[in-house]
Computed example of a mutant assay.
Amino acid sequence: MFAHEPLAADSPLWELPGVIVTPHSAGFSDGNGERVARLFLDNLAAWQDGRPLQMRVLAASEA
């Protein structure tokens, strides 16, 4: 969380090496926990098998 949201486009936080800026969630919907657990387990299996992960966000240097 930041003092002012959304984070300004010119904030130096966007360019910090090793930092990933993501939105925070203000609440949960029905079934959210199950969806998160399924995504985690699916990504764990993919990682173990050497397959691409779902919903991966690339760093600017990777894009």
Rank of each mutant, 00 (worst) to 15 (best):
L44F: 03
Q54N: 13
W47D: 14
A59S: 12
M55N: 15
T22S: 09
T22R: 14
G18F: 06
D42W: 00
V36L: 06
G50E: 09
D42A: 13
L13A: 13
V57I: 14
G31E: 02
H4V: 11
D10S: 08
F40D: 03
R51A: 15
S61L: 05
L53F: 03
H4A: 13
Q48L: 11
R51Q: 14
L53K: 03
R35L: 13
L39M: 10
F28G: 06
R56E: 15
V21D: 08
G33V: 02
L7H: 03
P52L: 11
G18T: 09
S11L: 05
G33F: 07
A26E: 12
E34V: 07
L7E: 06
V36G: 01
D42E: 15
G31S: 03
G33M: 07
L39P: 01
A63E: 15
S29K: 06
Q54C: 09
L44Y: 02
A60P: 01
H4E: 15
M55V: 12
N43G: 12
S61C: 05
V21F: 08
A26L: 07
N32S: 11
T22P: 00
A59M: 07
S29Y: 05
P17G: 10
F28E: 07
G18C: 07
H24C: 11
V21T: 12
A3M: 01
A3R: 01
E34Y: 02
M1N: 07
A60D: 10
A45K: 10
A63N: 05
E62T: 04
L16V: 14
F2G: 04
D49S: 15
F2N: 05
L39G: 02
A3P: 04
S61E: 14
V19W: 06
G27P: 04
M1W: 00
A26M: 06
A59P: 01
L13R: 11
N43S: 12
D10Y: 01
L13V: 11
A9M: 01
L41D: 10
F40N: 06
L53M: 13
G50P: 04
G33H: 06
